[in-house]
Simulated assay, not measured.
Amino acid sequence: MLLIDSWYTAYRPKLQAIACHFGYSLQEAEDIVHQFFLDLLQKNLPDAIQNPEAWLVTAFKRRLIDLHRIQQRRGNYREIESFYLPSAQEIIEKLETDAELINHIAAAFKKLPARFRRVIYMKYYQGYSTEKIVALTGLTHQTIYNNLSKGIQHLRQHLKKDTALERLVNFMLCLVP
């Protein structure tokens, strides 16, 4: 039971986001996730689950597919066209106007080593191509690639540590009216 409680705490937002992505409203997604974990409590789970996140996501997606089939059989099925899924552009615009998120990313960016900050700034903020960065800095293509890759990896690690940001991102994924 403690294992499932910890899974519920850790993976509930992600599973809700998946349900929202499948076209369910936020309230429906919450209900489906709650029922999913209640059903898990009643089952004998395998003892050797190596990767609980992958196992839960797969089982949850299968549950969503089963629910979809049941709704189709009962005639309660709503056409996918009736669901509003925000476009990538709309999501990007909402994320760009979120001051808390922008400040958090800026703070994470400032914590990067100077060599990573410099290359990321030139590539993504100034819009320079890799060739232009090579010409301006005198670094090799491989060094620029490595700095970009490692800098982005550091940003992801820093941003992943903040659970409030993770909850915010999962909520943004559930933007269904």
Score class of each variant (00 low, 15 high):
2 L>D: 14
3 L>C: 09
4 I>H: 06
6 S>M: 08
8 Y>H: 09
9 T>C: 09
13 P>M: 02
13 P>T: 05
14 K>P: 02
14 K>F: 03
15 L>S: 01
15 L>Y: 01
15 L>K: 02
16 Q>T: 10
16 Q>S: 09
17 A>G: 11
17 A>S: 11
17 A>C: 12
19 A>D: 06
22 F>C: 08
22 F>P: 01
27 Q>H: 03
28 E>V: 00
28 E>Y: 03
29 A>Y: 08
29 A>H: 09
30 E>S: 03
32 I>G: 08
33 V>T: 12
37 F>I: 06
40 L>Y: 12
41 L>K: 15
42 Q>G: 03
43 K>C: 01
43 K>E: 14
45 L>N: 10
53 E>G: 12
53 E>S: 12
54 A>S: 04
57 V>D: 14
58 T>R: 04
59 A>W: 13
60 F>A: 05
61 K>L: 10
63 R>A: 07
65 I>N: 04
66 D>W: 02
70 I>L: 05
71 Q>W: 03
73 R>F: 11
78 R>C: 13
78 R>G: 13
83 F>E: 07
85 L>M: 07
86 P>E: 12
89 Q>D: 14
92 I>P: 02
93 E>I: 04
95 L>G: 15
95 L>M: 14
96 E>N: 09
97 T>R: 04
97 T>P: 09
97 T>M: 13
99 A>D: 14
102 I>Q: 15
103 N>D: 15
104 H>I: 03
105 I>A: 11
106 A>N: 14
106 A>M: 10
109 F>I: 13
110 K>T: 09
119 V>D: 00
120 I>T: 04
121 Y>N: 13
122 M>Y: 03
123 K>Q: 14
125 Y>E: 14
127 G>K: 04
127 G>L: 05
127 G>S: 11
130 T>P: 01
131 E>T: 06
131 E>C: 00
131 E>W: 01
132 K>R: 01
132 K>D: 15
134 V>S: 04
136 L>F: 02
137 T>K: 07
138 G>Q: 00
140 T>E: 15
141 H>I: 09
142 Q>P: 01
144 I>P: 04
145 Y>I: 06
146 N>T: 12
146 N>G: 02
148 L>C: 10
149 S>F: 05
149 S>I: 00
150 K>G: 01
152 I>C: 06
154 H>K: 11
155 L>C: 12
156 R>L: 13
156 R>M: 13
157 Q>R: 10
158 H>V: 10
158 H>A: 13
160 K>E: 14
160 K>P: 01
161 K>N: 03
163 T>V: 09
164 A>Y: 08
164 A>H: 10
165 L>G: 07
170 N>Q: 10
171 F>C: 08
172 M>E: 10
172 M>R: 00
172 M>Q: 11
173 L>M: 09
173 L>D: 01
175 L>E: 15
176 V>A: 08
177 P>V: 00
177 P>G: 09
